[in-house]
Amino acid sequence: MLKAVFELGSDGPRQILVGVDGSPSSLNAGSYAAGLARRQSSRLVALYVATHSRFTSAMAASAGIALPAEADEYAEELGRLVHDRAAQIGIAIQFERRFGDPYEQLMTVATELRVDAIVVGASRQHGNPLVGSLAARLVKTARWPVTVVP
């Protein structure tokens, strides 16, 4: 008969990665992850990934908008919001920002930081919260438990 040996205090995730972009579902995911981190005494890392498409760049250029500067401003504002909310519930949080494809960056950061779980918001595109979404890709391919928050 095998006897299971458990290390006290390490049954839950030690480090949680949450993807945030300022959308309502990502803020819900951030709140859920923060509560989980507080209850489990886990380290929480919030990741914002700035993206742009050729269409967005063309529109920004025609309007005379400097996209990188706006992305930096938005990331700073989002970072302040994340830190403020974490302070309200009494947890420490690490805010990371990257540029590129959100899926690739979440996978990269999760690997670099050796996280135990990923939390993301459900996509509201196409009417279905999972079809063709970042969440669906993560659920199908990630090596970590993925929680999708509506």
Results as ranks from 00 to 15, higher is better:
residue 84 D to N: 08
residue 31 S to C: 11
residue 148 V to P: 04
residue 2 L to V: 06
residue 12 G to Q: 11
residue 147 T to A: 13
residue 39 R to T: 12
residue 41 S to E: 14
residue 35 G to A: 07
residue 85 R to V: 15
residue 94 Q to L: 08
residue 131 V to A: 12
residue 56 T to R: 14
residue 140 K to M: 14
residue 24 P to I: 06
residue 149 V to H: 09
residue 74 Y to C: 02
residue 18 V to T: 03
residue 20 V to P: 02
residue 54 R to L: 12
residue 42 S to H: 06
residue 89 I to M: 08
residue 139 V to C: 13
residue 132 G to D: 05
residue 147 T to D: 07
residue 86 A to Y: 05
residue 148 V to N: 06
residue 109 V to C: 02
residue 84 D to V: 12
residue 74 Y to F: 03
residue 23 S to M: 10
residue 149 V to W: 09
residue 78 L to K: 00
residue 133 S to I: 02
residue 49 V to M: 02
residue 107 M to S: 12
residue 70 E to S: 07
residue 124 R to F: 12
residue 93 I to M: 04
residue 20 V to W: 03
residue 130 L to G: 05
residue 8 L to A: 11
residue 105 Q to K: 09
residue 54 R to M: 15
residue 75 A to M: 01
residue 120 V to Q: 03
residue 95 F to I: 02
residue 95 F to Q: 00
residue 62 S to T: 13
residue 97 R to K: 01
residue 35 G to T: 09
residue 8 L to K: 09
residue 81 L to G: 06
residue 6 F to C: 01
residue 51 T to S: 01
residue 116 D to S: 11
residue 129 P to Y: 04
residue 28 N to C: 13
residue 73 E to T: 15
residue 95 F to R: 00
residue 18 V to F: 04
residue 125 Q to V: 08
residue 125 Q to S: 12
residue 45 V to G: 07
residue 74 Y to E: 05
residue 96 E to H: 01
residue 61 A to E: 10
residue 99 F to R: 03
residue 49 V to H: 00
residue 22 G to M: 01
residue 138 L to T: 09
residue 87 A to K: 15
residue 19 G to N: 05
residue 107 M to P: 03
residue 89 I to D: 10
residue 124 R to V: 12
residue 87 A to R: 15
residue 115 V to P: 07
residue 21 D to C: 06
residue 1 M to C: 13
residue 9 G to L: 03
residue 31 S to W: 06
residue 45 V to W: 03
residue 41 S to P: 05
residue 80 R to Q: 10
residue 134 L to E: 01
residue 97 R to D: 00
residue 107 M to Y: 11
residue 41 S to G: 10
residue 31 S to T: 07
residue 143 R to F: 15
residue 21 D to T: 08
residue 42 S to D: 03
residue 71 A to G: 08
residue 149 V to S: 11
